[in-house]
């Protein structure tokens, strides 16, 4: 949140700048198994965000000394491509990417059955190809699907979305304009089935009441996103069934 920024009306006549209602998600597109060489993969679009997640493993863990004798180690790398933003982002990890990588890994950890593959590494790579705020949520959504695609044993899928406050209103799924000029941004990740939150961050200021309202809104949106993730995974095999057999 920047202080002293130019005044911008983010809400005009009860609608947001892109025409969405306060509780409306941006359009989502999910494709499973897009990378031939990865063990699991997912291409995910959230509005103008385009992200791709790749999962490798379980495979041998290097460096050896970092191996866990009892379970797999989950590695997560969130990275923004230099061309994903308006002003070229210099390649390589920066403090923000390192933080997002850590938060994302912790969002997925609770559901992964790491005990099944001791001494190995499960590597998740999320590349942001085009960014319009909410990339970390798109990344977690894509990573969940990619992990399932790779056959990693998991208790559940994890779904993620952000809520925030713009012009005093609590809204769902901020885009870049809203995130840059708004008053709060709160990404969350959760397991839809159990309503268990696995990641929660906040930037800005919310009253207790706004926080609770925003959380409720985000959780309900996560259920919607979960249905889309699930459908994408199920349809991938159903489609082939129609083409190939009776």
């Amino acid at each position: 949140m920047k202080e002293g920024k130019e005044e911008i009306e983010l809400i005009k006549e009860g609608k947001r700048l892109d025409g969405r209602g306060f509780e409306e998600l941006r359009p989502i597109k999910i494709e499973v198994g897009v990378l031939k060489r990865a063990d699991g993969s997912c291409y995910f679009e959230l509005g103008d965000n385009k992200v791709i997640a790749a999962v490798y493993g379980p495979r041998e863990m290097h460096p050896r000394h970092a191996q866990d004798a009892k379970m797999a180690v989950v590695k997560f790398r969130y990275n923004m491509a230099p061309f994903s933003v308006d002003d070229r982002k210099r390649p390589g990890p920066d403090r923000r990417s390192v933080e997002i990588s850590k938060v994302s890994r912790e969002a997925l950890d609770p559901v992964i059955m790491r005990e099944f593959y001791p001494k190995t590494a499960i590597e998740v790579y999320v590349e942001i190809l085009q960014s319009d705020a909410g990339t970390r949520t798109a990344g977690i959504n894509a990573a969940s699907v990619a992990l399932a695609d790779a056959g990693i044993p998991m208790k559940d899928l994890v779904s993620s979305v952000a809520v925030g406050k713009i012009d005093g209103e609590v809204v769902l799924d901020l885009d870049a304009m809203e995130d840059n000029h708004g008053e709060a941004d709160m990404p969350i990740a959760m397991v839809a089935r159990t309503n268990t939150i696995t990641a929660l961050q906040m930037d800005g200021r919310l009253t207790k009441e706004e926080f609770e309202r925003g959380l409720k809104l985000a959780m309900s949106a996560c259920h919607q996103i979960y249905e889309l993730q699930r459908t994408a995974l199920i349809d991938r095999y159903s489609e082939s069934v129609e083409v190939g057999g009776e």
Partner: peptide, 23 residues
Amino acid sequence: ALRYGIVDERGEIKVVALSGKYV
């Protein structure tokens, strides 16, 4: 279900994985 796969309820309830690594 623990895996992404196909349910087989004929005997034991199993989910036959569609992908994964051999152990």
